[in-house]
Computed example of a mutant assay.
Amino acid sequence: MTDKGLKVTDLAIERGGRRVVDGVSLSVAPGEIYALLGGNGTGKSTTLFAILGLLSRAGGEIAVVGRDPARDPDAVRREAAYLPENVALYDHLSAVENVRYFLGLAGEARTLAELDHAFDAVKLAPAARTRRVGGFSKGMRQKTAIALALLRRTPVLLLDEPTSGLDPAAARDFHDLLLDLRQRQVAILMVTHDLFGAADTADRIGVLRGGRIAQEWAAAAQGPRFDVQVLHQSYSGLAAA
């Protein structure tokens, strides 16, 4: 996979004189969801920042739809949408106004019908779309940000703890949306602590420990996608080691 999806090979990143990522390799094809798990300080978010070209790397290679963020970070950010744990929106603007503003910054324009279609897809109620987002719950803010990602039509989506702080119903809606994006052939890399949510949605799950992927599982083609008990025991053991 050289010109589609996401590929990270032997990634190494040093911060404060310490190597926080030390040989991470993973790939995410179009129409695939990869869940990257690990405790605090294991390098999950650092890996995302390097993919976006926000951190320099000490070694390894990154290709986002064939583009290297170290050489062409602007092109990479056009190809990859990023959803942080705490979505940054303008509280004094409505959901529609926020989306239109950020699309304008990206040099893209969409019709009102296209905006409504995206908001319908993320299940943001019509009455909420013209309200100021300052009064939104975290789930509603996430839905607004995902609607923006849909409208940008990027082939790669990077998610940092997307279900943190969401109630169970909002988390289910979010996972349903990820499955819809997978059907649209988006390559999705999701950093998360939510093992059970990952097991419900991901095609592959990797666990970071000591700055590298200590173990990886692939979903079964038939029957239960993952043995959740085995995942839980393995993940708990790796996190405690």
Rank of each mutant, 00 (worst) to 15 (best):
G139N: 07
V207M: 13
A199Y: 08
H232D: 14
Q229I: 07
A75L: 15
A240D: 15
L26K: 00
D173L: 12
G16W: 07
T9C: 13
N86H: 14
L159E: 01
A187D: 01
S234E: 12
I62S: 09
D200K: 14
R78G: 13
E61N: 07
K7S: 15
L55E: 10
L151T: 01
A29R: 09
A221T: 14
A80M: 13
L6E: 05
P155H: 13
Y90G: 10
A81K: 00
G53V: 00
L6P: 04
I33T: 01
F226W: 08
W217L: 05
R78C: 12
P84R: 05
G5C: 08
T154N: 05
M190W: 02
P224F: 09
L83H: 09
G66C: 08
R225Q: 06
Q185E: 15
Y235F: 15
A198W: 01
A106M: 07
H232A: 14
P84C: 12
E161H: 09
L112C: 00
V99D: 03
E108H: 06
V8D: 05
A118P: 02
I13V: 15
Q233V: 10
I33H: 01
L36R: 02
R132L: 04
D116W: 03
M190V: 06
E85P: 01
F196W: 13
F119L: 11
D176P: 01
A240Q: 15
G210H: 07
R57M: 13
V76Y: 12
E161V: 06
A95N: 12
L158I: 06
P168W: 14
R18E: 15
L150E: 07
A29H: 07
Q229A: 13
L151E: 02
G104N: 13
G210W: 07
Y235P: 01
G31D: 03
S234I: 00
M190H: 02
S45F: 13
A202C: 04
T144Q: 05
A170Y: 03
W217I: 11
A147K: 00
A202S: 06
A113F: 08
A187I: 09
R212Y: 04
V24Y: 06
Q222S: 12
T42C: 10
A63F: 06
L124P: 04
R110M: 05
L83T: 05
A145E: 03
L208A: 08
V122R: 02
K4E: 15
T201V: 15
G237W: 02
V28R: 00
G211W: 03
T111I: 01
T130E: 15
